[in-house]
Design a protein around this nucleic acid. Sequence first.
DNA 1: TATGATTGTTTGATATTCAAACTAATTGTA
DNA 2: TACAATTAGTTTGAATATCAAACAATCATA
Lengths: 139, 139
Amino acid sequence: MDSLDELTHELFTFFNGFSSWENSVIKTSELSVSEAHAIEILGTHGQMKMKTLAGHLGVTTGTTTVTVDRLEKKDYARRESVKEDRRIHLITLTQKGQQAFAEHHQYHSNLTEQILSVLSSEENEQLINILKKINAEAF
Amino acid sequence: MDSLDELTHELFTFFNGFSSWENSVIKTSELSVSEAHAIEILGTHGQMKMKTLAGHLGVTTGTTTVTVDRLEKKDYARRESVKEDRRIHLITLTQKGQQAFAEHHQYHSNLTEQILSVLSSEENEQLINILKKINAEAF
DNA sequence: TATGATTGTTTGATATTCAAACTAATTGTA
DNA sequence: TACAATTAGTTTGAATATCAAACAATCATA
């Protein structure tokens, strides 16, 4: 039980470090946390309807309506209607939204580099390998 | 730049998985996210004054006042005054608060076990080693 | 075409957070 | 010792986040 506790501790320390880094990065932008998350999802997966976005965000469609309202008002995203089904709105990043996504991605790369700088190239390979396994199977 | 991108992707996938797991665990309790965080910090580090707790939480003391108010109302924590400096309130977990901390810790251990189950014992050791390095040096 | 399902919005309520103003207590200094 | 500056914590006012439930519009189908 000792090694388990040790790993638990290191895992959650890592998670908390990541978490506060992420928050401090978002605070430097003019986006709220939920807006930033929405942009990240839209940038990663491309345009999608409200319900899908809500699913990715892990919140209700009501909450997502509010978030997208604000993104639209600030010109980071817009709703596009679909001829085939007029109930559906596809949410799309604007130029400004894509720019924000690119910037955010650059921050992520910076953190990865920061992490890599304390690891040997062997450990780097081990980490990728381990994360792939965990991401594919553990959650 | 290719391997960097790959690691970035795996890191943030891992972080997001962790994040949504954490949220879903908290939702099963009668605690809010901020209350759960406060309990985790108090359980890990023991009693501390408002300002220190606010620092650990990464929020202002005003926000922390509200959080501790609720924890006190629900009997998870209490404020204790200090003779030497009557401005200071030490926040302490009650029995109920310690119980909640123990339960939460158990959930954490469960997730660690879940993660370990997809790794070999060699990878397990690699992971601990890597996380220790990152936690000590990278953030 | 009527009925039921789906998509998204609105509403009302509670929670979260911050900055700034404020109170109380302590410390430094003249 | 008295007064100014600092520190700890609370309160206030405003913006944001979130949900569940009610709602409107549209679609699918029987």
